[in-house]
């Protein structure tokens, strides 16, 4: 609990430094803002359930960047070709992730991965709209799920 809060406090301090563009003349205001933000985050989101494993973060970020660039390229090419490039369909996935943060992250991130967009999350079933059902997206979705479970340190 306490190490988590100290980490958050540090992140908020860096955030303040960035927002103030490196100026430190009104430091007291920054201290008040950082303390208030830490307090608010402790009240609104107590650092207990599903803690992120920071060591897995760089790998996840790289995976995310690689795939969102691929996704952006793919949809840009489809837009240039028009409707002829599309063969949309709806997939229904069974999520093995625990509810809360991990499922919400999965639902959100799927919308930025190549060819997929979340339509409805109900319990552990996620319905996904796909731009081209000829692409085999099941393996990619599986990899994303494995990455997220590693990030939260939960087994599938």
């Amino acid at each position: 609990m306490i190490p988590g809060l100290i980490l958050r406090c540090l992140l908020f301090a860096v955030l303040w430094w960035v927002l103030a563009e490196g100026h430190i003349d009104d430091l007291w205001l920054g201290v008040v803002a950082v303390m208030t933000a830490t307090w608010a985050s402790a009240v609104l989101m107590p650092p207990v359930a599903h803690r992120l494993r920071l060591i897995k973060m760089p790998g996840f970020v790289l995976f995310f960047l690689r795939n969102s660039i691929r996704g952006g390229f793919q949809v840009a090419m489809m837009a240039l070709r028009g409707r002829a490039a599309l063969q949309p369909g709806v997939l229904e996935l069974q999520l093995n992730l625990p509810e809360g943060g991990p499922r919400v992250l999965m639902t959100s991130v799927i919308g930025l991965m190549p060819g997929t967009l979340s339509v409805e999350l109900a319990e552990d079933r996620l319905r996904v709209h796909v731009l081209d059902e000829r692409l085999s997206l099941a393996a990619e979705v599986g990899e994303l799920e494995a990455r997220i479970s590693a990030l939260f340190g939960v087994g599938l």
Partner: peptide, 30 residues
């Protein structure tokens, strides 16, 4: 270019779901 492609997708894609794909992915890359 990616903003252009995203807007093109918004105009050319047939339904709300496909258009969201274009906006979410292409515009964010842009």
């Amino acid at each position: 270019f990616f903003y252009f492609a995203g807007t093109l997708g918004l105009l050319r894609f047939p339904d709300v779901y496909s258009r969201l794909h274009a906006l979410a992915k292409a515009d964010n890359l842009g």
